[in-house]
Amino acid sequence: MLHEIIIAGFGGQGVMSMGQLIAYSGMLEDKHVSWLPSYGPEQRGGTANASVIVSDEPVGSPVISRPTAAIVLNKPSFEKFEPMIRPGGVLIVNSSLIDSKSIRDDITIIEVPASELANELGESRVANSIILGVFIALTKAVSEESVIESLKKVLPERRHNLIPVNQAALEKGAELVVQ
């Protein structure tokens, strides 16, 4: 089992945190993980990405050249990473912000109107959790339970009230895959 995941978007969209959550969850499942951020002179509004590896074996290179999955949250990230995905891999597109369509027929593509779905839950801030729900349902890289467990660890105590709505968001994302 080897998942090489790239999560990319604008700075401030939460790509680093989403990556850390996946890495943390993998660690809780006793898998080998690594998390590598792009760290250019980034700022809010610039593009940023995190490379996350979840594997049964010790992680070799933390640098990913052919991702098994890419989560793209903005258009520049779509354009950069869509061609790099390994055949048989997964592309998750935040269609609330990206109108580009992939024409590749050798990967699984799922478009997620994350902002709209988050608003349906009455909490616009859980858009990333919906996408994460899609990701874990599609790839089984980590389990939903581990993500919830990780949220408890990474969120400060005063934010734990947000865990139920995040859980609902993860499940809403997973339902999208079933459909």
Binding site: Q20, A23, M27, H32, V33, S34, W35, L36, P37, Y39, V59, P62, V63
Partner: peptide, 10 residues
């Protein structure tokens, strides 16, 4: 190198 400094691992 910067990669080693910036990356996360358990």
């Amino acid at each position: 190198d910067g990669m080693l400094g910036q990356m996360m691992e358990p």
